[in-house]
Design a protein around this nucleic acid. Structure first.
Lengths: 222, 222
DNA sequence: GTCTATAGGGCGATAGAC
DNA sequence: GTCTATCGCCCTATAGAC
């Protein structure tokens, strides 16, 4: 389960504990790659493309900074791979939710739209994944990242329209609430919720119905 | 009209033309301050807090880089002032829309919610303003910016609830569509629209009804 | 009040040992 | 395959002239 990697990488990026990966040195190259991509997803999601440093990624992954650069060429190439991987995971999760034959939880309704709505909310547990995508959406003016980000968003929109069968209005409403959830996670609004702020409680209970428990778990690192 | 400043600062940040401010050197200190804040709003909105450089702000404002730092102390303090100013403008625009006695355009409905919905859409013309706020929303993990960003979002939410009289659900839907519009602007989705991409056309005509003309105007710098 | 010059630090990337 | 050492750039901030 990749959730192990993600949770570990997610526990405050600042003080990465001594971090002895399972097999110590010389694990399979493919595994190292995934390990670094997971770390990079967390760091890019938290600080954005420019705020993230290859050194922070390296520390979270438990490798040296030059190794990160060596493996992906440049920081930019690393970010683009993070985006591609995140989008692939998103689309696979949507596709699985659509074809999944298991019954919906606790006698809830079962329409295609509701299924992928729940699937999206499930992805919020891995904060880095959706936040990295969201960070790219804010860099549309960048000559390299911009076109990739636009293409990624269009890919999701096309899926909603053609595979899920949403109307333009349904897709708009779905995406709007997705952006809202991303924003709540990026803002760490759950911190205020945990502090008992009545306003944040109202806000989150409406914006993230039923997902507050997992968000609180994953947002209290210290 | 501040739109003059904003439009000028917005026309591609890369090649700031020779930029002789109206009165050349020694304009009133207050005016210089506003000029720099306007430039900073555009640059922070486009590249985010970490991606923006004080030098880029200085170039857009037509002053020297050390002068920008001198006037605001640090880059961080400059960003916080940009956020405060943007939020003030946002709230003032909302408040004005609520109390405005002029009739709604072209026989549209006239409810408090619809009024501030139109007011929000009007603010999209100044891309930097809403994008700077949005960039701050993605930095909730930052120890300094995070709390300010959360407080700003809460301030808007409280206004919607208490001044406009929205229910939690109405506020959620309003904010969700706001985040969606911000995302479309940050992504520069209008570029694909202008290229005739049918998918982007569907998307934007639903997400930004009636605001496409202004967005296209302000997004074609070259 | 505004500039030029520059110090100082951090970061991405390279070289090369093991 | 992975590390240590380090280069060179860019960026924030300071010093000081005008």
């Amino acid at each position: 389960m990749s959730s192990v990697i993600i949770t570990a990488a997610d526990k405050t990026l600042e003080k990465a504990p001594d971090k002895v990966p399972e097999i110590a040195t010389r694990m399979r190259s493919q595994d190292r790659r995934e390990l670094i991509l997971g770390a990079a997803t967390a760091v890019f999601g938290e600080r954005g493309y420019f705020g993230a440093t290859t050194d922070a990624v390296a520390k979270v992954a438990g490798v040296s900074q030059p190794y990160v650069v060596r493996m992906f060429g440049t920081k930019e190439a690393l970010f683009l791979e993070v985006l591609e991987r995140a989008l692939d995971t998103l689309m696979k999760t949507f596709a699985r939710a659509l074809t999944d034959t298991s019954p919906p939880p606790a006698g809830l309704e079962d329409t295609p739209s509701l299924r992928i709505g729940r699937a999206y909310a499930d992805l919020l547990v891995d904060r880095g994944l959706l936040l990295s995508l969201m960070q790219s959406f804010m860099l549309g003016a960048d000559p390299v990242i911009g076109p990739v980000a636009r293409a990624g968003f269009i890919r999701v929109y096309t899926f909603l329209r053609e595979e899920v069968g949403m109307t333009p209005l349904e897709a708009d409403v779905f995406l709007a609430h997705g952006m809202m959830m991303n924003t709540m996670v990026g803002l760490r609004m759950a911190d205020l919720y945990a502090d008992g702020d009545p306003c944040a409680i109202d806000l989150l209970e409406t914006a993230l119905p039923g997902k507050l428990d997992v968000l609180l778990d994953s947002s209290k690192p210290a």
